[in-house]
Amino acid sequence: MGKNIIKTRRFFCRVLFIIAALACLGWADSWQELKSTAGTVTSVTAGFSQEKHMKILARPLVSQGKFLFKSPNSLRWEYTRPLKSILVLHNGKTRRFVQKDGRLVEDASAGLQSMQVVVQQITQWLNGRFDENPAFEASLAIGQKIVLSPRDAAIARLIQRIEILLSNRPGVIASVTIFESEDSFTKLIFQNVVLNTPLDDALFQQVFTLDDEQ
């Protein structure tokens, strides 16, 4: 059972990293242009709003957070509300912390041991080579949209498709929507995206909420 939890976690973590890496991709009309734009991105700082839509929900569940990425392989994915949690990746090590009773507690079920695979994938995507990801088939759709469809039937049972809407601003995406089914999907909307600002490594190593820092 423990192995299964880790396997499931690994899968969802990979999806998270796909989103993270895609946030670094730029607007373009071809894979080649995407690769060129992505190559210029060294860091991303953004806020995000996450909407969970399900048929049973009268209104979507809304979460908000902050997202930091530093090339080549440092990531911080922080939810600020309603539940504070922080996922950090640095030097191949991933950890997640959840705020409980006013303090941050490490989430042991997020045993993310597939870092080699993840880092390799991030490197691919940062170079704009996300169409080479073996797990998903990528297609460029009309309206600055990228659609990722799972190749594997086992993954398709979990995720029907991922849609990425590119912003008009090169290097920035507007939103990512992950469809688990037609009536159950998660939409991430990125705001206030800033590219290529210097980010301290401590942001990816130390465990504190960005609210605390401010």
């Binding site: 569940l61 989430d107 079920s109 688990e180």
Partner: peptide, 30 residues
């Protein structure tokens, strides 16, 4: 050690029905 998930419960005391959804913190339905 501790593990964390999200639980969504929709319930009705009238007919004692319930819908239960367990998700990762990122919102993926398990």
């Amino acid at each position: 050690r501790k593990g964390f998930l999200m639980g969504l419960t929709v319930l009705s005391s009238r007919d004692r029905s319930a819908r239960c959804v367990i998700m990762t913190l990122e919102g993926f339905v398990l």
